[in-house]
Amino acid sequence: MRDSDEALIKARGLVVGGGGGRARLQGVDLEVRREELVTLVGSNGAGKSTLLKAAIGLEPVAAGRLERSPDLRIGYVPQHFAVADNLPLTVERFLNLQLKRPRESLRTVAEEAGIANLLPRPVQGLSGGELRKTLLARALLRSPNLLALDEPAAGLDVNAQTEMYERIDRIRRQRGCGLLVVSHDLHLVMAATDEVVYLQEGRVSCRGTPESVRENPEYRRVFGPHLGPATAVYTHAHPHPHEDCRP
């Protein structure tokens, strides 16, 4: 048995880029423990995607320390993904790209991700939402203990966003995997988020529960005009203590 508090990923003072220009990450700490849900928020260019990619080893780290649990298995859903029309590829073949899996396990995961009816379709014809669910299914097929999702609901309409977050929440509860999620919008941060990390210009501006980040003056200054109860799709409602978010 592994201690559920044990870190899947532990980063200290991460610096990314900086050769020539401004570093895209300037000394960021990040920790994702087993079964924990950490959400990265911030405006465009704040370094959310960069931090996610650095944490899972897709982005070379210029300085800092990055520790990864030896049994870490990452399921990654990128923000941008498209398959060119010149490559014929069905959803089923796409899911089987790395490893051929038995048909039943493919079906189970396809149902979990909500794409069972899409399996024979060409990947190129999928809508934005269908493509995201397909990528999610592919990530799940690796039986990950950490899901890294870069803007999983980007480009979806509000209903589809809600559905996507509910689906991710369900998957997390059933599988008990850790989650590192990049989100554009704090209002859409998932209810069960344990920690929100608010990034600004490559630095952590503040971190804590969704409520405490929302109350942060710096956050209010940037996102203030959009604040309001009507836009909050999720509220944070589970009875456990969090550290405060101090500027």
Partner: peptide, 16 residues
Amino acid sequence: RPLLLMTVSEELARAE
């Protein structure tokens, strides 16, 4: 398999 995977997406191939 790996060649096809990196043809579809280098990023996914590297992540995996």
